[in-house]
Design a binder for these strands. Structure first.
Lengths: 343, 343
DNA sequence: ACAGAAAACTGAACCGGTTAAGCAGACGGC
DNA sequence: GCCGTCTGCTTAACCGGTTCAGTTTTCTGT
């Protein structure tokens, strides 16, 4: 059940050093108010005792931080496990937090209502100092909520629709244009985007960029269909698309999971990849490299994306006003799933 | 930067209700000491004010809980994103925690040293009330550490090597025997297990069960090779195994990621699945269903695994002594990747 | 009507830190 | 010699809850 020794407090240190607990606090926090000699003695005792500051006690002091930030991931649990994006993001956030001893609270919810409840509770109960929000939506109710809550936040997405909140955004439109031009250059004319949920802002941006770029490239028959990022949706949608008489010759998926599902369907239906169908996945991952043929993908540096988000949130928590930032754009990695039509 | 209104405290409620803060505390916690009428009034005021208890303040009181538990995942970040197991586990843990308002702290580390440091810090700083530990190792240093720390814990794994800590274990050996018998019944004689890292206890258990069952079934040439769960390891190992003259006719992978990688290699090398090679994956996931051919897999109910772990940890935190439990065993789901040899 | 007990509530201490205010002693300047 | 400042430390209040020990009020029994 664990050791019995009471955790040492600054009072224990004070007694051992023969000073008051105020002096100990000054010494431990590197503030003036104690002589260097006393400070050294106190630090040594603290080390010997294995003292560490009580996070709740710190948080309780006026102006104190709880030393934790929150992240809510609102995706169906079974699809989530497969999206490397989130774990990578978590990983990136944590590398940044590690140095400052800040922890990450992760919550997986099944709907937006639960997500909103989580922010409310975290703020009201003082569980976190701030939150990173992902999957920005059109008219996102979270934006207004968090704006009026005492809860610093950084949005991943935007820069439109973020209200007064600082955001970290990527040039999805630019990356999408690159994809379309690449496919056009390979000779594809009937291309379809299997997009994410319509309510996501980044879906909007990508769809618009896809259609615009296609039109500009003279690909009249381009269109986008919405799906929900799950493998099932990828399967269903692809099956439908490939069953038409004038089936598309290239498909662009908004996440890797749907792309892999699509690849499976093509194989099942006897449609050769890339000989008869090219496939591009958004968000690269080991997954794209593991399947055969390996998938051409848009890769972004999600780890550094997470790090930057954590950095910005740290600044926002610190109280400064934070500038919006643009993260590095995704790059296209051509692999075996794309090519010119043959036969 | 967020609303300006100060968070309401029980003192605010006390003033509004014209009682002392002690009375408010009794009322809010459903304890005797206030009349039903006063209690009702206080609750109404609390609701109107949008009051919620300050987590740090609660934790600070003698015997107070911080209302959070921790989970450290010690896997390389890039492979991790793909293992549905962890997200499912997180998801399961959280469904159990949700009702009691307990939060989950997630930390992703790159090595065991960092993991141990995390437990130390969490315990010393009172960040969590307890932890769930996964991937139990042979002579696991975490066991002794956590035993002597004031830090309730539940281990996923065992029941050997868990010291005095409560654990939740699965009958991996039984499931493995089922796999071997299934393959033997299909006529396979040269089977190889691509196992996880040797230092994991569950790897040991599975390897032993695999070899024992194979011998019992008269499959003299069965053997196990260790890998590290990453796609790269799956690729490399499979390539090596399939390049031998007497190549195996069936491979059993210890996780889904390596299995998918193996499938890719087989395809690349022109080895038909399942006509010339059968593949079984441990831990089912959407991934196994998405690739073609779909992978035969051992599926466990990871969500309920997580829930049970959370439940046990809750009991351990509560102070009771917790019985070890056996979680439901994984079941074999035969799909398209296994079959008798043809040709 | 009044003692005694139970119910309702108050006041204060406590958890473990931070920090403003106060105070004694050393030092420097003139 | 005295005044003022600086250093080094102590005291005490505060954060927002919980809880124990009392105190007052109300109920009960005879």
């Amino acid at each position: 059940m664990g050791g019995l020794m009471r955790r040492p407090t600054i009072m224990d240190i004070a007694k051992a050093a023969g000073v008051s607990k105020g002096a100990v606090s000054y010494a431990l926090n590197g503030r003036p108010g104690v002589s260097e000699e006393t400070r050294g003695r106190i630090l040594a005792i603290a080390r010997d005792l294995g003292w560490a500051p009580s996070s709740p006690a710190r948080a309780l002091s006026p102006g104190g931080r709880v030393g934790a930030i929150g992240l809510v991931v609102d995706r169906p649990a079974h699809s989530l496990g497969l999206e490397p994006f989130f774990m990578q993001l978590v990983s990136g956030i944590e590398t940044e937090l590690a140095s400052s001893g800040v922890d990450l609270l992760l919550q997986v919810t099944e709907d937006m209502g639960a997500e909103i409840a989580a922010y409310r509770r975290w703020s009201a109960e003082r569980r976190v100092d701030g939150v990173v929000m992902v999957d920005l939506r059109v008219d996102d109710p979270r934006v207004r909520l968090v704006e009026e809550l005492p809860l610093p936040a950084v949005l991943l997405g935007g820069p439109e629709g973020v209200g007064s909140l600082p955001c970290l955004y990527t040039d999805d439109a630019g990356a999408m244009r690159e994809v379309v031009h690449y496919l056009a250059a390979l000779g594809h004319r009937r291309i379809v985007q299997v997009a994410g949920p319509e309510e996501f802002m980044h879906t909007r941006a990508r769809v618009r960029a896809f259609l615009d770029a296609a039109e500009q490239a003279g690909l009249g028959e381009a269109r986008s269909v919405y799906a929900d990022y799950t493998g099932e949706a990828g399967t269903r949608t692809t099956r439908r698309l490939l069953a038409t008489t004038d089936r598309p010759t290239a498909l662009v998926y908004d996440n890797d999971l749907m792309a892999v599902a699509g690849l499976g369907v093509a194989r099942e239906m006897g449609v050769g990849v890339p000989s008869q169908l090219s496939i591009v996945a958004w968000d690269d991952s080991v997954l794209c490299r593991l399947v055969r043929p390996s998938l051409t993908a848009i890769a972004r540096d999600v780890i550094s994306y997470g790090r930057q988000a954590a950095l910005m949130l740290g600044a926002a928590i610190g109280g400064g006003s934070v500038e919006n930032r643009e993260a590095s754009r995704g790059e296209l990695y051509p692999r075996a799933s794309t090519g010119p039509l043959s036969a």
